[in-house]
Design a protein around this nucleic acid. Structure first.
Lengths: 254, 254
DNA sequence: ACAACGGTGCGTACGATGTACACAAGGCGA
DNA sequence: TCGCCTTGTGTACATCGTACGCACCGTTGT
């Protein structure tokens, strides 16, 4: 994206500290708005998410979104500076943290919950990984909330601030990778004609011809023909999650 | 994407086994081609990657790519059925596995190498995560090669095929998440005007106003004002990696 | 040597997209 | 009630992916 027409000519000195001072959408979003409020950031995000859930991320165009809101296309631009910002809005909005069930003092329970939530959100909104990859974001309200909760859980432990962040980022890396991977796989299954909750082995089977013909992957081929059990997605996610938690706990002595 | 004009009308029965038999590009790619070969999959992938590296993924349009190859736009479509397939080509081509240095019998060394390679590839081609998210792929030649190598490393161990796959996927999840996260962060830094290898704390500083004004993230705010050390990206990646390896090894008793 | 044929590259055209810009309209403070 | 600033509208343009039909050429069968 970033197809702004003006390309910002002579190029902004990329070393200057206060250059690029464009406030993020999150700083603008809380400002009170004037008259005639038929639209709102919330309504826009909600409609966009509904559209993406129903017809995929590609279907989320400014025109279609505006139409689904009963509004002219350009009206959206009073709330969003670019489509990228719309995506930012969407990725934040799907992560509304709702109530937490984990014991806030049990850090492993809190981390587990955060990881599971991330996975579930991604599976519920399969366009999420693509949106996040297209519009790099962190420091978004809901992500910060999750961060804050994890920091709270680590509060009683004897860790430096840097260590806490390392812990959180490591866990987050796993959760992100696992969630994205799973979405990836489901999307692939769907595109190839099997339902999103089909069996991965169907995919393997349909591509086996090519796999076997080039004898380049003998071990993998053997594995496939010997027969793999159906993948237990939740179980596998939990396994990696526990492995990561164990490994981190051991490494930090907690 | 997937903007094919014909939308495939009456809808293909999504349960039928041999429906959607469109061969992947990987099955077509090895077929011998006829006359006048000014183009090739390799040349196309190479040029596309160069373009993406130089000007970002958005700059990779069929027109620009064709121009950079000194060829008409539509010529590309003799090698690629859609832009999605071009992205598939690109994501596979950046992963050319080159020589392996790890002792092929030391599974941890092999896994480490695979994870590091993944991270390095993503950092060298920051558009990769976006491309992968946009066009779900696995079963691509180079990814299968990596898989094969890991399977080989696990060969001497007393594990079932399913366990091997679990091990590999868990490790891959971490590597993927960590790499994507790092790329994400660098891209953000760049967009905000700090160089890609700038300090994350600059980003925090520039958004602190908003963070502090809403007193919603007290712990995080405290962390930031107390001062965080500059992030050691490699060290942090390695830490999570070792934690994951330890945790997995323990869990599988290997 | 030559003809024909199938694979290769080209040019044009169309619908859709993001968004710049100038204008209309509608609610709030004076 | 009047003005004014904010919100919503309409039009226009560059660019995108790609369908379609034609031109070209290397190979192969005679």
């Amino acid at each position: 994206m970033a197809k702004t027409k003006s390309e910002c000519g002579p190029a902004a000195d990329s070393a200057a500290p206060d250059v690029q001072n464009t406030p993020t959408i999150w700083e603008r979003i809380d400002a009170p708005r004037g008259a005639r409020t038929t639209l709102s950031h919330e309504r826009i995000a909600e409609a966009a998410i509904a559209l993406a859930d129903a017809e995929g991320l590609d279907a989320v165009s400014m025109r279609k979104l505006a139409e689904s809101l009963g509004v002219a296309t350009m009206a959206l631009y009073r709330y969003v500076n670019s489509k990228d910002e719309l995506l930012e809005l969407m990725t934040d909005a799907v992560g509304t943290a709702s109530e937490l069930v984990a014991d806030p003092n049990d850090w492993r329970a809190v981390f587990r919950e955060a990881a599971r939530r991330r996975r579930e959100t991604a599976l519920a909104h399969p366009w999420l990984p693509a949106a996040q990859a297209q519009v790099p974001t962190s420091l978004t309200p809901n992500r910060n909330l999750a961060l804050e909760r994890m920091l709270a859980a680590l509060e009683p432990l004897p860790l430096t601030g840097d260590q806490k962040m390392q812990l959180i980022r490591a866990l987050d890396s796993y959760a992100r990778g696992a969630a994205d991977g799973e979405v990836n796989q489901r999307t692939m299954l769907e595109r190839r004609g099997y339902g999103a909750d089909g069996d991965v082995r169907l995919l393997l089977r349909s591509n086996m011809q090519w796999l076997l013909r080039s004898g380049r992957y003998p071990l993998f081929a053997k594995l496939v023909t010997d027969g793999l059990a159906p993948v237990d997605a939740v179980g596998e996610f939990e396994l990696g999650l526990e492995a990561m938690l164990d490994g981190l706990a051991a490494r930090f002595g907690i």
